[in-house]
């Protein structure tokens, strides 16, 4: 099967007053219709990698890549208009916190319909039907009611489901989920994840799943990229995680508590300057 996404030597840097901040320093991977996890500590460049693929890199940032290709389209040289039609249409992104990521003065239904009508020429009525179907697909029990609610009127879990519906309604082929559940309670997290899991499997989408939770990623994805300081330090199949070789990955694994063992003192993540190189 032809890969959906090629990323080769992706670099993102920000000129700031105190010098150049290199957020992403040469990330490479390819992705088919599979589930790829990206893990790493805060500030390791996970979000900037995802945003670079989406074309949401802030204008002041410098971005370069030997190859950044989606389904044969060279993203960096694509005209802005094409880029925009890909966003939300063929590549979608679910953001971390539904509380801030939904427009507070628009009803949930309108926001879903908006995505659909941006990418497909459908009548108002059909768009509404499809939005309601989509809400049902993210397991919202009473779609017609939720359709007219405002973001502040729904719970976090419901908001995140609405956001997933909003991003998936136009039927994208690739979904980038940037810590989609880290703002939610643990029980709600699992619910939302299982919905996401089902949708990805049913629709045969490619998924880039960003998280700092290695265990979550390994249970959810086929393959895992471990990032540190803007670079990929290890790429490994989720099932092989136990055999991870890089000390940073092992460090991340070690930090996870296991039942029945007494862990005193708590392990601290070891960081070596040479891993940055």
């Amino acid at each position: 099967m032809r890969p959906l996404l090629h990323v080769d030597d992706l670099k993102v840097s920000f000129p700031t007053r105190s010098g150049l901040v290199e957020a992403v320093r040469g990330v490479s991977f390819t992705l088919g219709r599979e589930r790829l996890g990206i893990v790493g500590e805060s500030g390791s460049g996970k979000s900037q990698t995802g945003r670079a693929i989406m074309g949401l890199t802030p204008p002041q940032a410098r971005i370069s890549a030997a190859r950044l290709e989606f389904d044969g389209i060279d993203l960096l040289s694509a005209p802005p208009k094409l880029r925009r039609s890909l966003r939300g249409g063929r590549i979608a992104m679910v953001l971390q916190d539904p509380k801030y990521s939904l427009n507070p003065v628009m009803s949930i239904g309108r926001q879903i319909v908006e995505t659909l009508r941006t990418h497909e020429n459908v009548s108002r009525k059909v768009a509404r039907e499809r939005a309601l179907d989509m809400l049902a697909a993210v397991q919202i029990r009473d779609p017609a009611r939720v359709f007219d609610l405002y973001p502040h009127e729904v719970s976090g879990g419901m908001g995140q489901r609405a956001m997933i519906a909003m991003m998936l309604v136009a039927g994208p082929e690739l979904l980038i989920a940037d810590e989609p559940t880290s703002a939610l309670d643990v029980t709600v997290q699992l619910e939302v994840l299982s919905i996401l899991d089902r949708l990805v499997a049913d629709r045969g989408m490619g998924l880039v799943f960003v998280s700092h939770d290695l265990r979550l990623v390994s249970s959810f994805c086929d393959r895992v990229l471990v990032m540190y300081a803007g670079k990929v330090v290890e790429e490994i199949a989720a099932s092989e995680l136990g055999n991870a070789r890089h000390p940073y990955t092992r460090g991340l694994l070690n930090c996870m508590p296991t039942l029945g063992t007494n862990r005193h003192p708590l392990p601290v993540l070891d960081r070596q300057p040479e891993w940055r190189l």
Partner: peptide, 13 residues
């Protein structure tokens, strides 16, 4: 605000 990023991610002009 974050909802502006989301709006961009939806592909709005």
């Amino acid at each position: 605000q974050e909802y502006i990023v989301a709006a961009r991610a939806k592909g709005l002009s």
